[in-house]
């Protein structure tokens, strides 16, 4: 590779073979070129950045920060509203529960009142029926008693007649009465 036609450029920095003599970095012949193009490059990059890129990125970043702040604010607001709604819901629930309890208590009271009335009525009826029954039983007993006395008088009179005596109505009645009266 050493035989290329670099003789034209051969000089202080390059040998006849086209290779560098010493460090190319230190060759003064080449420096003005690098310096010139470097300055052009730096100015170009500076203008690209300061005129277009940096303001644009700065605006995008601040816009994003603004958006994020707004979104966070909105989220905060929504959260508050959710908390409010939850409070309202809890309150409604508590109210409903209280109302339900009130209704239950009132219903219980009503039922109790009805029950009391009915019970009193029933008691009264039972008392009435009991009294009636007692009356009937007393009547029946009285009837039975008088029947027993009649049957006893007749039987006693018949017995006296059958035994050959004479039926003394008065004496028999007194005797029967004494017996029954003693028994009852």
């Amino acid at each position: 590779m050493a035989t290329e036609t670099h003789e034209a450029t051969a000089g202080a920095c390059v040998d006849a073979g086209g290779s560098a003599i010493g460090m190319p970095q230190l060759c003064a012949d080449w420096m003005p070129n690098q310096v010139f193009w470097l300055l052009v490059t730096l100015v170009a990059i500076y203008f690209i950045l300061s005129r277009v890129a940096l303001p644009r990125i700065a605006s995008v970043l601040s816009e994003r920060t603004g958006t994020i702040t707004n979104d966070l604010g909105a989220a905060e607001e929504l959260k508050e509203r959710a908390a409010e709604a939850e409070g309202a819901y809890d309150k409604a629930l508590a109210d409903a529960r209280a109302e339900a309890q009130a209704i239950v208590a009132k219903t219980k009271e009503d039922i109790q009142a009805d029950l009391d009335v009915e019970l009193q009525k029933a008691d009264a009826e039972i008392a009435a029926r009991t009294a009636q029954s007692e009356k009937a039983i007393a009547e029946i007993r009285d009837n039975a008693m008088s029947s027993v006395a009649d049957v006893a008088k007749e039987t006693a009179a018949d017995l006296v007649v059958a035994l050959g005596g004479k039926a003394d109505k008065k004496a028999i009645n007194a005797a029967v009465k004494a017996r029954i009266g003693g028994a009852s």
């Binding site: 290779s19 460090m23 012949d29 003005p32 070129n33």
Partner: peptide, 19 residues
């Protein structure tokens, strides 16, 4: 170190500041 040699892209002459 040859990789660091500046070369003219157009023409073979010596490298001027504007090459």
């Amino acid at each position: 170190l040859d990789q660091f040699i500046p070369k003219s892209l157009f023409g073979d002459g010596p490298i001027a500041w504007y090459s």
